[in-house]
Structure formats: C-alpha cells, structure tokens
Design a protein around this nucleic acid. Structure first.
Lengths: 344, 344
DNA sequence: ATTAGCCGTTTAAACGTTTAGATTTTGAAG
DNA sequence: CTTCAAAATCTAAACGTTTAAACGGCTAAT
C-alpha cells in the first residue's frame, strides 16, 4: 500500500491539496474550522510529509554534505558533533561522506591522484544529492585550493582552507605562544620544542609562535632546542633522548601533539629524569589519554566542537545568501594538568 | 540560471527525454549513433543528474539513516567507518543523526523520557527524508524493544537489539572466556575480574564467560575476586587496591574495559606491585591509549569496523527484500601486549 | 506485396510537493 | 437585498526524473 500523501489528506478533509499544504506550512491563512478538519485527517491517516518531494519543488534540501577525510581520526567526531549541535537547532541534516583516507592512502597522504579522485567523487555524489552546502573536514590543515569544484554551492573548510572560501581554523601561532607564556610563567627559560612534520602548516605556525615567545620573553635562543618530529610517538622518544643528552638540557619541552608526549615520557623515564620535577612538558590536542598518562599531561586543547559549530553556522549564512567573514578563529585552551612544574 | 536537466540534453541531442534517461541508466537499447549524440550533449552541458527527482520517482533514495547515540563515544567512528566501507561499494549514502546523548543526558543515561523523545525525533526526520533503512548505533548494548517505530522500513541495531529486528553484536561471553583462557595458558589460576556497571548486558555476559572459564579450567572459585566496577577509571583504582589488600591477592585481573585498567595500573604502582611481574591485567576495547600506557596493555579488541560493515550489509539485503539472519556475531580479538606475564 | 516481429524511439503519466493566480465565499457596509 | 473588498480556497502548472505503453520503420518471412 502506498504511503499516505497530502492527496489522501485532502480527500479525507474535503479540501484541495493546496489547502493541506497551507496548513502544513502555515503559509496562508486557513479558517480554524478547515484547519481542524485537516489536522484531524493528518492525525487519523498518520501522515508523514515527504521531504524528497518538497526538496524537488523547493530546490532546497535542508541537507548539507559533510566530507570527512577520515572519521576515525581523533578530531573528526567532535567537529561532527559541533556541526550536529547547530544543525539540530536549524533543521539542517547531514549527509556524511567519509573519504577513509587514513585507511586507503595512509596517515600522511599528500596531494595524490587517488586522493583527488576520492574528493571529486564525494563532491559529485553530494551535488547529485542536491545538498545546500558542503563542509570539508581535513585531518591536517592544508591549502586545498583547486581541489574541489562545488559548482556554485557554498563550502566551508575545517582543517584546510582555500584562497576563495570560508575556513575555520584555530590560531596555531597564538596557541603555541600561549603554551610558551605558561611555561615562562612557571619559571622556565630553556625551552625545547618538538615539532610535527615540517611540511604541515600547523607545525610552521606553532614554530612561529615559539620564536615569537623566545623573542618577546627574551629567552636564550638555542637551535639545539628545536627538534623536528613527525607527529608519531617514536619521534617524541628519540628527540627527547637527544635533548636530555645535551650538555645543557632544556627544563621544559613543548610537543606539538600529545602522541609525541607519550614518547617524551618514556625517554625521560629511561634517562631517569622525573616529570614534572626535572623536566616539564606540554602537549597539543588534549587527547583523552593525556589524562590517563602519568603524570597527567598538560596540553593545549583544540576547540573542535566549536569549529564544527562555526563551520555550519557560516555555511548556514552563506546558504541564505548572507555575507560571512572569510576566516573564523575559535581559540585553543590550555588544559592544566600535572606535567608542568616550576623551574628551579 | 537553472541547472541543466535531462530536458536540456534532450533538446540539444534532438531526442526525447525518455531516450536520455535510457542512455543514462542503460535501461534500454539505444542506437550507437543516438547514444553518442546524447553523451556528447551531457558532456557539453556539464549535466549532473538530480538524485532528488530520481528518488521521488523511484521511491528509493539509496540513502540509509544512521542514528548514533553519540558520535564522540569511542566505538562510534569505527562502526561508521565500517558502514561507509560497504556503502561506498554499493552506492549507499549516509544520513547521519547524532543524538548527542552523552552531552545532553550524560554517560549512563537510562530509558528516560528525554531520550525517547530524541530517538523518536530522529526516526521521524529520517522517515521524512525517505531513507531506505536505518542503522542504530548505541553506546551500550541494551534491549531497545519498543523504542523505535520505523514504520515498515528495515532497521538494524549495533550496540542494542530488539525482539524483532536484526542486530549485530560481538559475543561478550566468549570474548571474556577467551581472555580467561589466555590467562590460564600463562599459568594464572587466581584471577580476579572487575566488571562494568552490572545493569549492562555486556557486564553480565562477560561475567558469565568468567564463570564458565572458572568451571571449565577448574580454577579456585573465590567471590572475593569478583568486583563490581562502573566502567570508570576510579573504580578500577579502588577495586584493585582492595584486591591487592586481600590476604591472598590475585595474580591476574580481567578488567571489562581499558579505562578501568588505567586505574588498575595506578593502584598497582602505588601498592608497589609490578605489572606484569607480580600482577597481570587484561582489558577490553583496545583503545588507542592502551598502547600508550606503560606497560602497554593487553586487551580484547572489538570488531567495530566489522560490526558497521555487517550492519549495513544486512540492511542492504533487507532493503532488497532478502532474508537475513537475526543475529550476526563478528568476533573479538585478543591484542597481545605487555601487561600479562607468566605466573610463577 | 503483404505481414509479422523486432528494435529504437516517443508520448504521456506519474511520483508528492509548492505556489502563482483564479475563483469562490464571507461578511460588513450601503 | 446588493455590492464590494477581503479572506479563504481551489486550479493547475511546475520541479526533474522514470517507465509503461504506443508508435514507426525496418528486416525477413510468407
């Protein structure tokens, strides 16, 4: 049996389908008496509107496409949660496309052919589905100019940006500067930094923040304190060992993510230096496990939920034809735990 | 300017719209010469099909609704990833509804009014969007009978089940039994267990597996070794302290999740008992951090990706009118790391 | 030369809505 | 009892597809 449609309601309530539509949407006045007849019919026939038909006519789906480079990467779920938060309040639905790049290409995928193909496919699917706009969730911040042709529908980027579109990013430079300030306030001056991969934009920005802090706070500058990691635990381990072997080792380390801090902890332990007693460390990301390690690690938390929220909010305005600022920057926040002590 | 439609193609290629549809779908033979004219027109006009219109006519959206109780809970992303894996291969799209229960109600939400309301809303949205089927991703395994009325479209559950529908669950009893066997093989016989909340089904199942192992392997049975935790770290800590204070403490602990293992580690450390030297521990879940703790913890990994994959596969068959087995059980897998030693 | 059958193509209706614009109803004013 | 404007309702087209059924032309068999 066919599902009940507006037509069945019209028949039962003895009105035209137009009238039914009017009571459904409140787009025109209808006499209370008629209104009642219609709502009763709706009730009795257990009518459920068909958004597909509505979308076809209205040329608007109230659905946005979310392209995630990989939903299993730690930042994605909270961003999606933020998108949902706003979406719920504004009747916006989410069509999720998961590129699965981490599995299909590997963690540090570059701008490969395969990657472009996946992205293009995703967009074309979403376009066919007539989404009103697109949010792109990357795993690393990168310049994605030219990657996606959204054919006129608005798009906003998160972990990624483009020369012409909106993007939501936290301020890496400032976050790293703030982490440094915190260490300085705790009395540290010989502070090392372990970066992520240097072709990554956050790495460069955070390094900039480091330099700025060194300058502003007049810290002793020593190139030996600047170590290039690769985001992985092992590099945190290896580089910390090197740092601790220095004639004059640092009293604090700023690591560009929490995963590398795991390596820092291990190296320190093996070298017999205590954290936070003899060595302090700050991470980035506020991963769940940073509260589980011992010592519990102090870290810069990322405004992931807010990024998602702001992304869809911007998109919403774009969809409704309003102007929106090109770059939105929610703030990172230092989560104080136990891995930073005062320098002697 | 309106987007180009099948009608424009027809005009340009000098054929009827039906013919265009036929070449688009390959549903009927068309002369090569005509075919060429049409595809050329498609190319030139940069035609993109409108799936909304197609869905309306076909009464099929090729879209499934995924209701997640909370996407930020650790099990959700991998399940979604599995859903995507199959979805990509079979041209199934995903409309994601995130109930955000963890934020809105709290971690151990029961069967509250608010919860039922969110669920009902989600289903009704999805129904309006005319999804072909629904996958429900819970955070705990529970009986959800009567919660959702999917009005005739198929639904399959993951972390949750119903008396009438399909559900995908791993075998908790067997997983716990296997963990026990492993410990026994390592020479342990005095084995304690720290459960999750006892109103949770996995807790009860796993306890069953524990009992079975105790019986099968003829281990000394001691009620003092059975501790009721609440999934949280603190309970792991507290209960381990109690266990270690026993006149005859266990040589191994089976913890029903990795988070409580964090507490186990801490308690052991504070009591000066070494892991895995004097005490062994196995967790559940294979959380990312279980590889970051020291010792790296041995744990039962959950087949999350596979659950998602099987869920959508079952749904796919259901949508196409095929029968499908009611309960699918992908297997858990022991991840051997460093927290289990041989008993002396 | 007629006819049957097949192939390729077209016609037209349908899917469930929205929404201009036309039409009818209502009720107040004359 | 008319008249008229305002309010309520209806008619019908449209959104972009799919698809059953009809159609026309061709080939091959009679």
């Amino acid at each position: 049996m066919r599902k009940t449609s507006i037509k069945d309601i019209a028949l039962k309530a003895n009105v035209s389908i137009a009238t039914v539509s009017y009571v459904l949407n409140g787009t025109r006045n209808v006499r209370p008496e008629t209104h009642k007849r219609v709502t009763e019919a709706i009730e009795e026939l257990n009518y459920k509107p068909n958004d597909i038909a509505k979308s076809l006519k209205r040329n608007r789906t109230n659905t946005i496409g979310v392209i995630a480079e990989d939903v299993t990467v730690f930042n994605a779920p909270d961003i999606i949660d933020g998108i949902n938060d706003f979406g719920d309040r504004h009747d916006l639905h989410i069509l999720l496309v998961n590129l699965r790049l981490d599995k299909r290409i590997g963690r540090n995928f570059g701008d490969t052919e395969a990657y472009r193909k996946y992205a293009a496919n995703a967009v074309s699917e979403l376009l066919s589905k007539q989404v009103d706009g697109i949010i792109y969730i990357g795993v690393h911040t990168r310049d994605l100019t030219g990657l996606i042709d959204a054919e006129g529908i608005p798009i906003v980027y998160t972990y990624g940006y483009t020369q012409n579109d909106i993007s939501i990013q936290y301020n890496d430079e400032q976050a790293s500067y703030e982490a440094m300030s915190y260490l300085v306030r705790k009395g540290h001056s010989r502070i090392a930094i372990i970066s992520g991969l240097m072709d990554s934009i956050p790495s460069r920005q955070r390094l900039k923040g480091y330099y700025k802090a060194v300058t502003d706070f007049e810290l002793p500058f020593d190139p030996l304190l600047i170590k290039m990691g690769d985001w992985e635990r092992e590099s945190g381990y290896r580089l910390t060992a090197e740092l601790l072997a220095l004639p004059e080792p640092p009293t604090a380390i700023l690591s560009m993510n929490d995963v590398m801090v795991v390596g820092v902890l291990q190296a320190a332990d093996e070298c017999g230096v205590s954290i936070p007693g003899e060595l302090s460390v700050i991470g980035f990301d506020d991963r769940e496990f940073s509260d589980y390690l011992r010592p519990r690690i102090t870290t810069m938390g990322l405004p992931l939920h807010e990024m998602g929220y702001q992304a869809i909010e911007a998109l919403y305005h774009l969809i409704n034809g309003n102007k929106v600022q090109t770059l939105v920057m929610p703030e990172c926040r230092l989560i104080e735990r136990d891995s930073v002590g005062v320098a002697q």
